[in-house]
Amino acid sequence: MVSDQEVYRGILDLDWRRRPKDSYRILFIYLTLIVSAVVFLLPLLWMVTTSLKTQAEVYVFPPTFFPETFRWQNFPEGWTYESMQWTRWLVNTLTITTAVMVGTLISATLCGYGFARISFPGRDVWFIMVLASIMLPSTVTLIPLFVGFHRAGWLDTFLPLTVPAFFGGGAFNIFLMRQFFKGIPIELEEAALIDGAGRLRILWQIFVPLSGPVIATTSVFTFQAVWNDYFGPLIFLTSQENYTLALGITFFKGLYNTQIPYMMAMSFLMVIPMIIVFFFAQRLMIRGVILSGIKA
């Protein structure tokens, strides 16, 4: 596995040695960087300022950038607007997220350990199948899964969204766990095996306490994926009280007169946890993204 240091060498440690003859070049680089940063950040800023406008203010052309008065009450008003159940949807989203995270961590840890530390016939074939499943378009399994969940009476419950997480927890997470476990010194494990400790106990008492970084990475990625998931809830949930936040936002669109400020306010509320997680776990998230590319 690529170590933190290797990945961050140069990304975080800024080695900048300016020489006078480079100054035009540096000016050019800065100009390009600044223009790009504006292009990338302006939309988000627009989301925030729009969320603080009145409904009348957003339907003006040309639009003003800042609202005349900052309508912070758009947030509580949007939250309780007409028949919307944002509190309920938040609870639903958190319930699903928690269940998926628990399932993912348990099953990815078990599978990662099995692939990393026990050698048995057929192991590599299964591991290749796990990796290959990353490339399978999920469209192919969608219809039979829907039919299966329909037959099982699971539609409009959280089960189709959470139960699969307990069966492997996603190919990428298994891959991460396996890579990490492979790096733990074998001597620790052998000593424990000679002492007669069982595999599960070794996993729990030796591997898990050493695996903070990979557990955190998996958790952050799972949280992000479930929080952002739109397609799963769209297919498997039907009644409004079972909706998640992502589904809830589209409710504003169905109204005869789309409440743009409220819609932006709720969208921004959905972004906030992601921004918080990003700032606390920036290194982990970036490393996860990098690893997802390095395995090729």
């Binding site: 599978c111 099995g114 299964w126 499943s133 399994t141």
Partner: peptide, 21 residues
């Protein structure tokens, strides 16, 4: 033991990927 440890993903692949395919 190996198959017990990887059984979640083996079952998962069979039930949620290969079977549906």
């Amino acid at each position: 033991q190996g198959y017990l440890f990887i059984s979640p993903v083996v079952l998962g692949l069979l039930i949620f990927t290969i079977g549906p395919m």
